[in-house]
């Protein structure tokens, strides 16, 4: 569980536990308010037809963010793909 990787590098179906959030303060605050906080598990559900943005499952609901922002969220992959 030591290895962290950008959320944007996960494939659809993979999940990870949030370790760090980078980027500007106002965006980080909002992402955390939306439930993307350290220790939460986030699932990558799919990428949009043109490859960006990405659809996530966080705390039981679906949230979409751009890949550029997902690149700055570091997660430790949980290994077992869900579903």
């Amino acid at each position: 569980m030591m290895d962290v990787t950008p959320l944007a590098s996960l494939m659809p179906g993979q999940a990870g536990v949030i370790a760090e959030l980078h980027g500007d303060d106002s965006l980080r605050v909002r992402l955390m308010e939306m439930g993307l906080i350290r220790g939460e598990t986030v699932h990558v559900l799919k990428y949009a037809p043109l490859g960006d943005p990405v659809e996530l499952d966080i705390a039981g609901y679906h949230l979409s963010i751009r890949k550029g922002d997902a690149q700055r969220i570091l997660v430790s992959p949980t290994g077992q793909p869900t579903r």
Binding site: R30, H62, S64, I65
Partner: peptide, 9 residues
């Protein structure tokens, strides 16, 4: 603007 878009059921 950053995209932070909820996709409700």
């Amino acid at each position: 603007p950053a995209l932070i878009l909820e996709l409700p059921p």
